[in-house]
């Protein structure tokens, strides 16, 4: 029996590209995913609930929301979370994401996140890397600036989604922008969206995101703090490890 309940508001259209952006390093994926939802005016499709996440209900403009939700349009779907996901929820949520993707004939799962770099403060335009589970995933090459992640370790929920994708032979990949680790990084999220524009012709205007960057940094301090507490227990520390294969 699944550990998650699905609350359906609207049917998920078939054959979408599914972006996943949940709290992680620099909140890059969360910021990018939320910006895609608002820019493309996606509609709420489902809410997800589980006894593996804290009992939280979010209120926005007087309406209640589940903290983990999926929005969609005919072309795209976006999974977001308002809370840092505890390690106890990561495996079962990854499996559920793959179940939803397969059931709704999702074409690709595109994970959005950051890769923390020590000199982020000196970087004006963060580079974006692609980490793919198969050589057959090539659409990210439409953007000449994206580099393939050749060495390194990915930890946390994104690793769990990629592993589940490998097991089920599902085409997933991650887009990772150079980012801060400890601080919300809307600049890195902007870099991701610019690459998404090139790959999927989304034509999202990133100007408002860059204009609101300082306010986003200010308002997401608490979420960043809670996220770091969760990341310490989710395998993220291995991202700073040189893999044995590399030695």
């Amino acid at each position: 029996m699944s550990e998650w309940n699905i609350i359906t508001y609207r049917e998920i259209p078939k054959e979408t590209i599914m972006f996943v952006g949940v709290p992680d390093v620099g909140l890059v994926g969360s910021i990018a995913a939320s910006f895609i939802v608002s820019s493309l005016k996606l509609e709420l499709s489902i809410g997800l609930d589980s006894d593996k996440i804290p009992p939280i209900v979010l209120f926005h403009k007087g309406k209640p929301y589940f903290p983990v939700r999926l929005y969609s349009s005919n072309k795209f779907s976006v999974l977001i979370s308002e809370i840092a996901l505890p390690i106890e929820a990561i495996y079962s949520l990854s499996k559920l994401i793959l179940d939803i993707a397969i059931e709704n004939k999702v074409k690709r799962i595109v994970i959005l996140s950051g890769v923390p770099v020590p000199n982020r403060i000196e970087i004006k335009t963060p580079r974006v890397f692609a980490a793919t589970i198969s050589n057959e995933i090539t659409e990210f090459k439409k953007s000449k600036d994206i580099e393939l992640l050749k060495e390194g370790i990915i930890g946390g929920i994104y690793a769990s989604i990629l592993k589940e994708s490998i097991k089920r032979k599902f085409p997933s990949y991650a887009l990772l922008a150079e980012s801060h680790l400890h601080y919300p990084d809307p600049g890195a999220a902007g870099s991701l969206i610019e690459k998404i524009n090139q790959i999927y012709d989304t034509n999202i205007d990133t100007k408002p995101l860059f204009e609101q960057a300082e306010e986003i940094r200010l308002k997401l301090r608490e979420l960043m703090k809670r996220t770091l507490e969760q990341l310490r227990r989710s395998g993220k520390e291995y991202e700073y490890t040189i893999p044995h294969l590399y030695a």
């Binding site: 400890h182 601080y183 960057a213 300082e214 306010e215 940094r217 200010l218 301090r221 960043m224 703090k225």
Partner: peptide
């Protein structure tokens, strides 16, 4: 408001970063 910060310690110094948006 209380800003986000991190503290690193090297052999000879303490390095503090403080995020100060706005």
């Amino acid at each position: 408001l209380i800003p986000l910060y991190d503290v690193k310690e090297t052999i000879n110094e303490i390095i503090i970063h403080v995020d100060l948006p706005n």
